Amino acid sequence: MMMSDTKTDWPSSLDDSELDELDAYLRGHAQENEGHLLLDGVHGLLSALAVGPTRVLPEEWLPEVLHEPFADETEGNRVLALLAKLNDSISAELDVDAYEPILGEVDSEAGPALSAAGWCEGFSRGIDLRASLWEKRLADDPPLMEMLGPVMALAVDEGILSAEAEFEKLNDEEYDDCLAQLPAVLAAVNHYWYEHPATEAELDALNRANEARTEQQPPPRQRSGHWVH
């Protein structure tokens, strides 16, 4: 799950220098007290959209990632190209069973440790962009909720989601096990929506919800560290 020095086999994937470039841009324009997503969060957001029930256009998700005008046209075109390439890479990786989440790395008493906080934050925002579809299916279809179990456990553990019942923090082994399951979770959810697409009634409800939707600022998220892949 650590970042590899070898270039991936599909042309749509970002290489390490491109990931570093995008990471630097996002860090340079992020305000933690505004809950802005870093690279791991953007990857989580785009991952949720890639495996979700309906297509989400860039004009819908870009406001979750970019929060100010570009300094110049060249910078803007470059950043947008990197984001598009990152977005494309997720579907490519899922197609060949090679998906790996981009995760945060934080300092712990035992040294650097992987953190799913940013990725889970982004994933939850991706679900929010199609909230009515996800919420109805999660309520009506327990197997989908079960599929997402490792993601839910990590999100609750990191304080991204609140648990209805008392939740005991994951130990290191349980946390790592949930991280290891993320590629399989996304593959399963991707297959679920392919086999059980949104119904016409669900899409009508989504359209009504989108029409009534008002923009809300996400809650602040305090985090730091580096990303690894």
Rank of each mutant, 00 (worst) to 15 (best):
6 T>S: 10
7 K>V: 15
9 D>N: 10
13 S>N: 04
13 S>Y: 10
17 S>A: 13
19 L>M: 15
21 E>G: 03
21 E>Q: 10
27 R>L: 08
28 G>S: 02
29 H>T: 05
29 H>M: 00
30 A>V: 01
31 Q>I: 08
31 Q>C: 03
31 Q>T: 04
32 E>H: 03
35 G>K: 11
36 H>V: 01
37 L>I: 00
37 L>N: 00
39 L>H: 04
40 D>H: 05
41 G>R: 01
41 G>P: 01
42 V>L: 04
42 V>C: 03
42 V>F: 01
45 L>N: 08
47 S>L: 02
49 L>P: 10
50 A>F: 01
51 V>R: 08
52 G>C: 00
53 P>V: 08
53 P>C: 09
53 P>H: 06
53 P>Y: 10
56 V>M: 05
58 P>Q: 02
58 P>Y: 03
59 E>A: 13
60 E>P: 00
60 E>S: 06
61 W>H: 10
62 L>Q: 07
64 E>H: 15
66 L>R: 06
67 H>Y: 08
71 A>R: 15
74 T>V: 15
75 E>H: 07
77 N>F: 14
77 N>Y: 13
77 N>S: 15
79 V>T: 10
79 V>E: 09
91 S>L: 06
96 V>R: 15
98 A>W: 07
101 P>D: 06
101 P>F: 02
103 L>M: 14
104 G>H: 05
104 G>A: 11
104 G>T: 09
105 E>G: 02
105 E>I: 11
105 E>S: 12
106 V>W: 09
109 E>S: 09
112 P>Y: 08
112 P>I: 02
116 A>Q: 05
119 W>E: 00
127 I>H: 00
129 L>H: 04
129 L>P: 01
131 A>E: 12
135 E>F: 04
137 R>H: 07
137 R>L: 02
138 L>N: 02
138 L>Q: 01
145 M>V: 00
146 E>L: 02
146 E>G: 01
147 M>W: 08
147 M>F: 09
150 P>M: 05
153 A>M: 13
153 A>F: 14
154 L>E: 03
155 A>R: 02
156 V>K: 10
158 E>V: 03
160 I>N: 03
161 L>Y: 09
162 S>I: 12
164 E>A: 14
164 E>S: 13
167 F>I: 10
167 F>M: 06
170 L>G: 07
171 N>S: 07
173 E>W: 15
175 Y>I: 06
176 D>G: 06
177 D>I: 08
179 L>I: 12
179 L>K: 12
180 A>T: 04
184 A>G: 09
187 A>I: 14
187 A>S: 14
187 A>Q: 15
188 A>H: 06
189 V>D: 00
189 V>P: 00
189 V>G: 00
190 N>V: 11
194 Y>A: 11
195 E>C: 05
196 H>N: 14
198 A>C: 05
199 T>D: 04
200 E>H: 12
201 A>D: 12
204 D>R: 08
204 D>A: 04
204 D>I: 02
206 L>M: 08
206 L>N: 02
211 E>Q: 12
211 E>R: 14
211 E>D: 13
212 A>L: 06
213 R>A: 15
214 T>K: 11
215 E>G: 03
216 Q>P: 00
217 Q>S: 11
217 Q>L: 09
220 P>S: 15
221 R>Y: 05
221 R>K: 08
223 R>N: 07
223 R>V: 03
225 G>Q: 00
225 G>Y: 00
227 W>L: 01
